[in-house]
């Protein structure tokens, strides 16, 4: 793990833990955006995974209705434990432990009652696509984003169409009239 990535993840984990304890969902979402810079630059598993985790948790905690499920308290306890352990592992520079802790966090979701489990799994899956579109928004090509996140370009293209990414001024590179004129020419 790159030193800068480690520093940033540690910072995000600490701030996210605070945000969860204070139920500050807006801040949690902002923290997930912050992780995206590293994910765009380093494109490593650590940065992309933490971006997906924090974004997903912001979505999960946003849904107050989830808290009515019997196993919610178990989920909440597991998440707090995950943050504590992950922070400790990174502070001790124990990357192997950190990887196991992240892996275990995903596994604990499967211990939840079926409905809550399925909701949360759906949130995590949606988060991957969302982060894919955000990485593309940050300038990474669709193909490269698909490669980094292990997604299909079909999924990404479909999602991108619903965003405003194509409307950003930088995206317009040639006069559309000239481009069409050229295409007409080659089809004559």
């Amino acid at each position: 793990m790159e030193e800068e990535v480690k520093k940033d993840i540690l910072d995000v984990l600490k701030k996210s833990l605070e945000a969860i304890k204070k139920e500050d969902i807006v801040n949690l979402r902002e923290l997930s955006n912050h992780t995206l810079h590293d994910a765009s630059i380093y494109q490593d598993d650590y940065s992309t995974t933490i971006a997906i985790i924090i974004y997903s948790l912001s979505k999960v905690f946003e849904r107050v209705s989830y808290r009515e499920y019997k196993s919610w308290s178990m989920f909440y306890k597991n998440i707090l434990e995950f943050f504590d352990k992950a922070i400790k592992a990174l502070e001790e520079d124990n990357i192997e432990d950190y990887e196991v802790i992240v892996h275990d966090m995903f596994n604990t979701i499967y211990d939840l009652e079926p409905k809550l489990r399925d909701y949360i799994i759906n949130v995590f899956q949606g988060a991957r696509i969302h982060k894919a579109s955000r990485l593309h928004e940050h300038g990474v090509s669709v193909g490269r984003v698909a490669e980094i996140l292990g997604l299909s370009e079909f999924e990404i293209m479909d999602y991108l169409g619903k965003t405003g990414i194509a409307d950003v001024e930088f995206s317009i590179t040639r006069d559309v009239r000239e481009r069409i004129k050229f295409v007409r020419g080659i089809f004559k």
């Binding site: 940050h138 300038g139 090509s141 950003v168």
Partner: peptide
């Protein structure tokens, strides 16, 4: 998709986009 098109047609635009989005 826009990234490859920007590299081919307006590489400076892509630099500006990266500057703005990455905050570096």
């Amino acid at each position: 998709e826009r990234t490859l098109r920007m590299l081919i047609e307006e590489p400076e635009n892509l630099k500006e986009l990266l500057n703005k989005k990455l905050g570096r």
